[in-house]
């Protein structure tokens, strides 16, 4: 993806130099080589900090909300999966489409550094990509690792190389090679458990939550001006760690709010410091919506009505619709 990074830099330079856009959103080097952060570039000098490699998983579409409030034009580089989130933000009127120049960039699947480490590699200095493999330089020599084995979980459910929305594209579309993967596999497995086992699983998972709100802040579908849980007026906003609904049911209520709007971009699970499988909650809703109301991919376009904001006269009755062994 080195070649692509070069093309991105040139594109950004042309756009900024020509004044076509006032700022460009891409990725910039983070502290560690595998920890790239989203970056704003509003002049060409800063562009050399711009990077695009196997560790640019961050979904940049949510950063456009602030930009489109100022009457400026912004360019943004989006991977195919990020473009779905932009469509959802446009549908939710959080981003003004005409103030954004969307440039689609190909992606061969982003790498999860923890999976690389899990292959027993210590003292990693750098990783370079070549074809379907990664060469990992460590203090104890270099090693070849197959990219398909160390992909982020979210990339295993890759929605393909097509862009849901883009003004221009750079480079050729790349396929993400990975073993066959059913994104609902774990959901189905959980559904097959007994209620006690399922409850134990979720009690275990949700007890790890430290309420850092990273999942809410990264989620492009969670784009309220002022979140319900931060609003003292709302009956749910009990920050104190007592028995308020907020503590116990934050994740369920949040999953409910994004139901029908979540594009399954997987960012919430990726950024969760406690590694809670939050995507399972969202995928459960997506699986239910697909089953009850027909397949629906949030963000596939910017106008079809979200499932929870529409209805059908002969929808299934609530009682009949629950799964799992009782």
């Amino acid at each position: 993806m080195q070649k692509i990074e070069q093309l991105i830099k040139e594109k950004a330079r042309d756009l900024l130099a020509a004044g076509q856009v006032t700022s460009v959103i891409a990725w910039q080097k983070g502290e560690m080589f595998y920890d790239n952060a989203p970056g704003y570039f509003d002049n060409t000098e800063e562009l050399d900090a711009l990077v695009y490699n196997a560790f640019c998983a961050a979904n940049l579409s949510k950063y456009l909300i602030a930009n489109t409030k100022k009457d400026e034009k912004t360019a943004v580089f989006l991977k195919p999966c990020d473009t779905y989130s932009l469509n959802q933000l446009i549908k939710d009127r959080r981003v003004q489409r005409e103030q954004v120049l969307v440039i689609g960039i190909p992606c061969a699947g982003m790498v999860d550094i923890n999976k690389v480490k899990a292959q027993g590699l210590k003292g990693i200095i750098g990783i370079t990509e070549d074809g379907d493999n990664l060469t990992v330089e460590t203090a104890y020599g270099t090693k070849q690792v197959a990219r398909a084995e160390v992909l982020l979980n979210k990339c295993l459910a890759c929605k393909g190389s097509a862009y849901a929305v883009s003004d221009e594209t750079i480079g050729e579309p790349m396929a993400v090679k990975h073993a066959p993967y059913d994104r609902f596999a774990v959901v189905k497995e959980l559904e097959s458990l007994s209620p006690q086992e399922r409850f134990a699983f979720w009690q275990e998972e949700l007890s790890k939550c430290i309420r850092c709100n990273a999942c809410r802040d990264i989620c492009p579908a969670c784009s309220c001006e002022q979140c319900l849980f931060d609003n003292p007026e709302s009956p749910l906003a009990g920050k104190a760690n007592n028995n308020s609904a907020e503590e116990q049911l934050f994740h369920i209520i949040r999953a409910y709010h994004v139901a029908g709007r979540c594009t399954d971009c997987g960012e919430c699970s990726r950024v969760c410091p406690q590694g809670i499988r939050l995507d399972l909650l969202n995928r459960k809703f997506i699986k239910d919506i697909n089953e009850f109301y027909g397949d629906y991919q949030a963000g596939a376009d910017a106008d079809t009505n979200a499932p929870l904001l529409s209805f059908d006269v002969d929808d299934v009755e609530p009682g009949a619709a629950t799964k799992g062994r009782e």
Binding site: P195, F199, W202, F292, L308, D315, A321, T322
Partner: peptide, 15 residues
């Protein structure tokens, strides 16, 4: 009806 269908399914999913 839609909201409750999803909520019931989620509650069951949570055990």
């Amino acid at each position: 009806r839609r909201r409750m269908t999803l909520l019931m399914s989620m509650l069951s999913f949570l055990g």
